[in-house]
Computed example of a mutant assay.
Amino acid sequence: MTETATPSADPIVPPPTASISEAPFSAAYTRYAMLLLLAIYTINFLDRSIINILAEPIKNELKLADWQLGLMSGLAFALFYTVLGIPLAQLAERRNRPIIIGTSVAVWSGFTALSGATTNFVQLVLCRIGVGVGEAGCTPPAHSLIADYVPKEKRASALAFYSMGTPLGGLLGLVMGGLIADAYGWRVAFLVAGVPGLLFALLCFLTLREPRKILAAHSARV
């Protein structure tokens, strides 16, 4: 007599666990944080590019040679921006990223505003070095924060949104710098370009949140 096989019980499927990549904050706060980071990145490029439109009046007033303009607007900025980018990125891997970003914004904005008070080539080069040092601490921690603020399926569009700061800042730097320089002089243009960054730095300190503890607690639960 053939025995009838008893159908086995359905395999037990464990309930799905929550994704560790879930956004740590509300959608409204994440939108605010993304807008603030975009504004910060916009003034990053504004302060970086405004020197280009102001080069001619600076050259005429301070009686600079072409090589001095090149050093001031190129090497003095780019060298420190490039060299310090990696150590500041490594610092952002361990420390509070909003504080790093806020400090960086305050440094480069302060040196941008201070550029308007310079009276010779050396002072202006030192200010441009300060701008490069400050701006080196912006993008690495900002990218890291965006990766934590936004779920993984939306990170590409979030990074693209943040990257809009490049053309926006470049455009504003050239247009605003030219208009203000024509009306009030290149010194005022530097001041107007630098002051808003100090406000954004304050907003960064007071309103941007570091999500590492929240994400670590969520990871421990799952």
Rank of each mutant, 00 (worst) to 15 (best):
G130S: 13
A181D: 12
L202W: 05
A92W: 02
I146E: 07
G173M: 01
G197H: 00
G197Q: 00
H218C: 00
L202I: 04
A113R: 04
T112Q: 08
E135K: 06
R155E: 02
W186I: 07
T112C: 14
I146D: 01
L202T: 00
V188E: 06
G137Y: 07
A220K: 14
A189V: 08
E210H: 02
L126W: 10
R155L: 05
A201H: 02
K154V: 00
L191S: 13
A113Q: 01
G130K: 04
Y149C: 03
T139D: 11
A160N: 08
I100G: 07
V125C: 09
I180M: 09
R209M: 00
L174I: 13
C127D: 09
G197L: 01
T139C: 11
T118H: 13
I129N: 04
L159T: 10
L199A: 14
T118Q: 15
L124M: 15
G130I: 09
A113N: 07
A156N: 10
L171F: 15
T103Y: 12
G165E: 04
M176S: 13
R187G: 06
A201Y: 00
E153P: 00
F200C: 07
M176C: 10
L159H: 04
L88S: 07
R187L: 03
L198K: 03
G132E: 09
L171G: 14
L215N: 04
L159W: 01
K152E: 14
A136M: 12
A193G: 09
A189Y: 06
R95N: 14
L206K: 09
A117W: 14
Y162W: 12
C127A: 10
R97W: 11
G116Y: 05
Y162K: 02
L206G: 01
L174F: 14
A220F: 12
A189K: 09
I100P: 11
P167W: 01
G130M: 11
